[in-house]
């Protein structure tokens, strides 16, 4: 699994709960080093161990922890680059959802050799989407739930986003209002800033 996901998980734990919590979690998970490196690859088993250890320490479930990580990745001001790269996916949230199947290809374009999940989109009507995410070795769908909720806010859309009750890999999205609020500004040419 790519270090970016692991690094984000560590970053979320360190910045939300403090370095001490991270140190405890990595010891619980028997991580053989202190920090993940964003540009290296890791065994999915390490990520599962860290998620399980962190959820247990924080008294929550792996799924709800991963949702928080997903939201944090998009909303943390220090990681504005991630939000920006995702905003290239469309001018509004509907456009973004229509192109969400391209997210893995975009990720691969940015990081050749990036091991990415497979996104499959099913649409019913203009406002209902079913997104299935397959990634052998790690159940990343809850993280995508968190990230999608944050992206909907970013675009200013009113959206219901829930994990599917029957299929853990599937996310149900219902777009209630594509222009609910102003959303956050996205400046296409703002890369260098």
């Amino acid at each position: 699994m790519h270090g970016l996901v692991n690094k984000a998980l560590q970053g979320f734990l360190v910045e939300t709960y403090g370095r001490q919590v991270w140190d405890t979690v990595r010891r619980d998970a028997a991580l053989p080093f202190e920090d993940f490196e964003a540009m290296l690859n890791y065994e999915p088993g390490l990520t599962r161990a860290v998620v399980a250890a962190a959820a247990s320490r924080l008294g929550t479930t792996p799924a709800s922890l991963l949702e928080d990580v997903g939201t944090w990745i998009v909303t943390d001001p220090a990681r504005d680059r991630v939000r920006r790269l995702l905003r290239f996916g469309g001018a509004d949230f509907r456009d973004f959802m229509m192109s969400v199947e391209q997210v893995p290809d975009r990720a691969r374009m940015a990081l050749p050799g990036f091991d990415v999940p497979r996104f499959t989109m099913e649409r019913s009507g203009r406002s209902r989407f079913g997104l299935t995410i397959e990634w052998p070795g790690f159940d990343i769908a809850p993280l995508v739930v968190g990230a999608l909720r944050a992206m909907a806010d970013d675009y200013g859309a009113l959206v219901l986003i829930e994990p599917d009750e029957d299929d853990a890999r599937r996310i149900d999205v219902e777009l209630l209002d594509n222009r609910h609020s102003e959303g956050r500004h996205f400046d296409l040419g703002g890369a260098a800033r």
Binding site: L85, F88, R106, A110
Partner: peptide
Amino acid sequence: VELLYLREAILATTAE
């Protein structure tokens, strides 16, 4: 748009 995306992604990965 794809070029802009790539340029921004390269800035990010180069920094990392």
